[in-house]
């Protein structure tokens, strides 16, 4: 099995959207393009329970075929890690189980296989997870309430890049913020695989007032067409992700 490319959006936010399109609808549209939308909701240290608006976090991820977590800022690093990895595994598993159904017939699910065979399937999933090319677009909510969490977000992204670099497969990441002055989203870092560039980007973050999550998601998804081409993955790309990617948004 050839490794393809996995595309993900990672949205880091601390509240509900209050302007523009419905982010849940947008998220569903994005997932139909074969891009998973993962969402991390960041709680304030003094928040003892999940604020009402934050449940949107789970809904966006669910609609986007992604993973969501609601966490305190101090475990952000681990969470970014886990969410990305789980979402990636989920995508690969989805792909593998589709293949399995083609081989064994409609009713076959991974769970229906005897444990021995499941171990073999797991090995394939892991091999793919390690070698597949990964494109992660990080979209950071920089509205006023996120301001004091930015240091944590920066550390988490730094740490995340470290994990990306340990993989055998290629990776590209880009960073966007929303809202920005006079625009909904702003590109902070274009697609790159250079881990050292995160540090230079973050001082630029400035917070704004509104939270147009849906509109921001809708805008950033276009940039997946700008990922710099690597010969290897141009040729054999879209193995895992459906081929509708590439059609204009």
């Amino acid at each position: 099995m050839k490794a393809g490319t996995i595309r993900q959006i990672l949205l880091i936010t601390d509240g509900c959207s209050n302007q523009g399109e419905d982010p849940i609808q947008v998220s569903e549209m994005i997932s139909q393009k074969g891009i998973a939308v993962n969402v991390i909701g960041v709680l304030d240290d003094d928040q003892t329970e999940e604020p009402v608006g934050l449940s949107e976090v789970n809904d966006i991820a669910k609609a986007g075929n992604g993973i969501s977590r609601i966490v305190y800022a101090d475990v952000l690093s681990e969470t970014v890690q886990t969410v990305t990895r789980q979402a990636m595994t989920q995508t690969i598993q989805g792909f593998v189980s589709k293949e399995l159904k083609e081989i064994f017939g409609k009713e076959t699910d991974e769970e229906d296989l005897p444990p021995e065979t499941r171990g073999e399937v797991q090995r394939v999933v892991e091999d793919l997870g390690e070698s597949v090319d990964l494109q992660v677009l990080i979209l950071v909510d920089t509205s006023a309430s996120m301001q004091h969490k930015m240091e944590g977000v920066k550390d988490a992204i730094d740490d995340f890049i470290l994990s990306l670099q340990a993989r055998t497969g290629n990776h590209h990441y880009s960073i966007f913020q929303f809202p920005a002055r006079n625009q909904i989203v702003k590109e902070l870092l274009p697609w790159t695989n250079d881990g050292k560039r995160v540090a230079k980007v973050f001082p630029k973050l400035a917070a704004g007032g509104i939270t147009p999550t849906g509109a921001a998601l809708k805008q950033v998804v276009r940039s997946f067409q700008e990922v710099p081409a690597l010969e290897e993955w141009r040729e054999e790309s879209d193995d895992i992700i459906d081929s509708s990617y590439g059609s204009s948004y």
Binding site: T89, Q93, E110, P115, G119, Q122, V125
Partner: peptide
């Protein structure tokens, strides 16, 4: 179940 499969 993938956790179990992987650790096994």
């Amino acid at each position: 179940s993938s956790v179990i499969a992987a650790e096994v």
